[in-house]
Design a binder for these strands. Structure first.
Length: 491
RNA sequence: CGGGAUGUAGCGCAGUUGGCUAGCGCGCUGCGUUCGGGACGCAGAGGUCGGGCGUUCGAGUCGCCUCAUCCCGACCA
């Protein structure tokens, strides 16, 4: 009998189970919403990191590391920035514990910090405080650094991968001599993210610009990539900010230009996080569990032996080892599931739940016929193939699956993008989920009213696809508009 | 922080108007039979019922307090 698997509408958490769990901290602990990423989940994250890191290096960036703890005063130097993050900061106030007269371990009141330290919610401030010492001349620019780190944002409500109190991410921080160069950098990096999402995660995204309301605290412009999950909600998958001279002014970072004058440095920052793991799950998962794109799958091929006797087992395993060696040499990662206490049907279901792209099953019947059963996770189909040529077939399958997963997600997204012209239509369509392309008068006031009435927000002003620059009337206020923007309910 | 709900074995749950030794399914351990789509039998292990105080001869059950979790708001990547 098949084990019950939650339907898509039900809850994504079932699919997460192999990847991540809520941290089981001490009883009565107020720390909420931290996650433990399991080895299988972390393996996917490491593959993401490797792909992203390679792209960062290719675009001239270097990795560095800055402190976890930020003096409160640093955070306060950029007014907009601190306004945006103040409400969600974890603060360190003491540096020592002690054992009191009752043998209880307590915070030592004598060890109160003169100035509180904030656990980084993002690192602009501490990095720009450091950059002041690194940048003296135009010859020091551009400065292109990236940091892989964890950050803490004390959110009211958390959700595994999408909004945890602590999450892993990368944050790029660059410094430039001119505004144009910084803008080009911010735009370049959002394209790096889009390329990663599309070609590695097999997830379609729209590149766009955030409205003023959704902009990063302290940025002049925020570029983003927006993806659509299978329930029709939008997920911001990555952001890249043009920070202008805001942080340079806040931290007094000036450089001597070619003419001998002093200018403030122009900045960008950009980041993606373990939220991408959530995106991966929700973009591709189906009722049988995860569906991993081959380029991120920790295991490309799982081999399940089918046997009754020890002799059958040994000969099946020997054929499998041979195939495994060849697959490994082709660059695929392979696992032979040799557990003897589980039936094959159970193993099938389990590896499907984990989203392994291809399964190869071999039993006595195959041994006789020189065949193997090849199953692909994305289509849930299987075929019997001769062992000769199997390796080439499986290697080719990886590209096919990668492509198919993307196209499936793309078809879904395009089916759920609607052009909307009237407010009644808007209210009706937003209930169905998906992206709504409509005119907007450009004011925060209208945006807020629309959000209050429908929970929908402007996901972005599209820049690379669904760009619709045309005269029109705001769907809400009726005032003139020059282009359509994307509204959706978001995670 | 407002509104609602829930805390009983690793997970999911039952537990009646308070009653004696706290149950069930999955999982786990051992043995045997099975093995081409989530097997079955038998025998086991596993709980201070979220925590505290109270009512009572007696509390998983009733009351108060507290902590945590989940859902809906506000906030957010």
């Amino acid at each position: 009998m098949a084990k019950e698997v939650n339907s898509r509408e039900d809850n994504y958490s079932q699919w997460y189970n192999d990847l991540v769990v809520k941290a089981n901290l001490a009883e009565n602990s107020a720390v909420r919403g931290c996650m433990v990423i399991k080895p299988y989940g972390y393996a996917i994250w490491e593959k993401m990191k490797a792909e992203l890191d390679r792209r960062f290096k290719e675009t001239g960036h270097e990795n560095a590391y800055f402190p976890l703890l930020i003096p409160k005063s640093f955070l306060c130097k950029e007014a907009e920035h601190v306004k945006g993050f103040a409400k969600e900061c974890a603060v360190v106030t003491h540096y020592r514990l002690k054992v009191d007269e009752n043998d209880q371990v307590v915070v030592d009141p004598d060890a109160k910090l003169e100035e509180e330290l904030v656990i980084r919610p993002t690192s602009e401030t501490i990095i720009w405080n450091t950059y002041r010492n690194w940048i003296k001349s135009y010859r020091d620019l551009p400065l292109l650094c990236n940091q892989w780190a964890n950050v803490v944002r004390w959110e009211m409500r958390t959700r595994l991968f999408l909004r945890t109190a602590e999450f892993l991410w990368q944050e790029g921080h660059t410094a430039h001599a001119t505004s144009a160069e910084a803008v080009a950098e911010a735009r370049r990096m959002i394209h790096v993210y889009a390329d990663f999402a599309r070609n590695i995660m097999a997830m379609p995204v729209v590149i766009g610009l955030k409205s003023e309301k959704e902009r990063f605290a302290g940025a002049l412009d925020t570029y983003c990539i927006e993806a659509m999950m299978q329930d029709g909600r939008a997920l911001q998958a990555g952001t890249s900010h043009f920070l202008g001279q805001n942080f340079a002014k806040a931290f007094d970072v000036k450089f001597a230009n070619r003419e001998g004058g002093l200018d403030y440095v122009w900045a960008t920052s950009w980041g993606v996080s373990t939220r991408l793991m959530g995106a991966l799950v929700m973009a591709h998962g189906d009722d049988n569990g995860l569906v991993l794109p081959p380029k991120l799958a920790p295991i490309h091929v799982v081999m399940v032996p089918i046997f009754k006797t020890d002799e059958e087992h040994d000969s099946v395993i020997s054929v499998m080892n041979d195939i495994k060696d060849k697959l490994l040499r082709s660059g695929l990662s392979v696992k032979i599931d040799d557990r003897d206490n589980l039936r094959s049907g159970f193993k099938f279901a389990e590896w499907e739940l984990k989203g392994v792209p291809v399964r190869v099953a071999i039993g006595p019947r195959d041994l006789k016929n020189g065949t193997a059963e090849v199953f692909r996770r994305d289509t849930m189909t299987k075929e019997s193939l001769p062992v000769d040529g199997l390796v080439d077939h499986v290697v080719a399958l990886m590209d096919e699956i990668q492509k198919n997963i993307y196209e499936k997600a793309l078809a879904f997204r395009n089916k759920n993008i609607h052009i909307v012209n009237t407010w009644d239509e808007f209210k009706e369509k937003i209930e169905e989920g998906g992206f709504l392309l409509c005119h907007w008068d450009g004011t925060t006031e209208t945006e807020e009213k629309i959000q209050a009435e429908t929970k929908a927000t402007i996901r972005c002003i599209p820049l690379d696809s669904f760009v619709m620059e045309e005269e029109g009337k705001c769907v809400y206020s009726g005032r003139p508009s020059k282009r359509r923007v994307i509204f959706a309910r978001a995670y």
